[in-house]
Amino acid sequence: MGEIDANSEMLVRSKKCVNCGAVNHPSKVRCRACKGTTFEDVSVPPAGTVVTFTTCNALPRRLGDRKSQGFAIIQVAEGWNVLGQLDDADAIALNDLVEGRWEQVSTNDDGSPAFGWVFRKGGA
């Protein structure tokens, strides 16, 4: 994945605790590690390594007519984790490098789109 401008929407954004440095993704009222309440913005490119993954064949209504969907926990730069969908779980192994894009991942009950990260194998 090439360089991404710091202002790009194509970044995984979260909150780092000013007191202890733990990243809370997504943000919380009090830090998961130290209960601190002051945070600073952090953002990293949507790329990292596969911590674990699965392909699920029994899906909730929000995924519509899909018959199966891959999911993975990805460790991004700075060492914190995110959950995302996988493009092709059959091509994935533990510790693989992946890169992601931000797009519609499901549909809410009211018909509105829900956006999130979708990862595929690749990256340096």
Partner: peptide, 16 residues
């Protein structure tokens, strides 16, 4: 916002 939007399920978590 961190899990449900993706359509992830409890069997998915158990599998991971």
């Amino acid at each position: 916002t961190a899990e449900k939007i993706y359509g992830v399920t409890l069997p998915s978590f158990a599998a991971m």
